[in-house]
Design a protein around this nucleic acid. Structure first.
Lengths: 191, 191
DNA sequence: CCCGTTCGTTCACCCAGGTTAATAAATCAT
DNA sequence: ATGATTTATTAACCTGGGTGAACGAACGGG
């Protein structure tokens, strides 16, 4: 039984013991090394991952080949490219492990089965999605109304544990600037 | 019976005639003049709106009081501040009507009732949320990887009908620049 | 039809971040 | 440890958008 996963779902819905077993059986643990891809650009995202341990980044690539890191997911969070997962279109983003990670994965078909087979399955799907949606909206608001310095400060506040686990250039990308600029921001703040 | 609304929901789930009647009865039509607010910053968002006719903008305010328009919703689309709606926190955004609008509204409690009372209610909630989530992710990706000129071009492509219905300074805000800058972009593109 | 207001464009100047490249610091493997 | 590689900082120069203000065009109410 994937206890962390079941605990997580328990926060959203009630499940019988049988349902817990059933759900747990549909998730398969996969090991990833640092640098491995959970999902590669151009592939079709066919599974949702629950990160048992580790850390991943969400990567999009500009036409010039430059990679941008637009979000992070760590242990006890879900990771997926929903845009591709939902309509089976090729992803325009990759998901790469920044640390060795163990990710519990459930396939598209099994997740649909979960929605129907588990009594409150649909509700779980709705609540999980609502949560992801709110996170996306917050990030959007931040990009519109905060300047890079404010976003960097907020990053430090929101993800204090990630600062030590991430190279600076992933953070600068997330914040929306290039490494030299984040250096300048840090220098300004040092005073 | 709110036919446009029911048609819209029919694309997502199956409903009996009784369910259609029941759902329809929970939505109340409200009239708004141009400039009226569907939701004001600081209020708690207690309802989801389905825009029968009209056009609204989603507005966030910077500390200096400057208003930023970050998205639009038009007829046959939903509008809501989910961040506030879901946890009953005060909104950090407003929703303002740009045109005279008729918005069908359902209260938080009635929507929760819809989820349980209608057979595929939860599924409707999940699918509607998934759709909104994907839109938010796309906008995020656009902000990260496109420059203002590309975003403006994409706006023209994605919302050709809105160009005539919106003042330039809402578009410039959505694109992420100030009006003088959008003028420069338009001038560059004119060649 | 006219006047007042709002809206879009343009100009001049400024500045934060981009770019390129060099250097320094930290990390890693052997 | 030590040398190689990766990452972070710094410097000099460039550029596109911000700012404030002026002007002209479009719009709406009376």
């Amino acid at each position: 039984m994937h206890q962390h996963l079941i605990d997580n779902i328990s926060h959203l819905i009630r499940m019988s013991e049988e349902e817990k077993e059933w759900i747990s059986s549909k998730f398969i643990a996969k090991q990833f090394n640092k640098g491995d891809y959970f999902l590669r650009e151009g592939q079709i995202c066919r599974e949702v991952g629950f990160i048992e341990s580790g850390l991943v980044r969400y990567v999009i690539t500009k036409e010039n080949g430059e990679e941008l890191t637009t979000s992070f997911n760590k242990e006890l969070e879900y990771t997926c490219n929903y845009e591709s997962f939902l309509d089976h279109s090729p992803t325009k983003a990759s998901i790469q492990c920044i640390e060795p990670s163990v990710i519990l994965t459930i396939s598209y078909d099994d997740l649909q089965a979960l929605y129907t087979h588990v009594k409150e399955g649909e509700k779980f799907g709705r609540l999980a999605c609502e949560y992801q949606y709110v996170l996306a909206i917050r990030q959007l608001g931040s990009l519109y109304k905060q300047d890079p310095e404010q976003r960097y400060l907020q990053f430090l506040e929101t993800y204090p544990d990630l600062v030590q686990r991430l190279p600076q250039y992933y953070i600068s990308s997330f914040v929306g600037v290039k490494p030299p600029s984040l250096s300048r921001i840090r220098k300004r703040l040092a005073k």
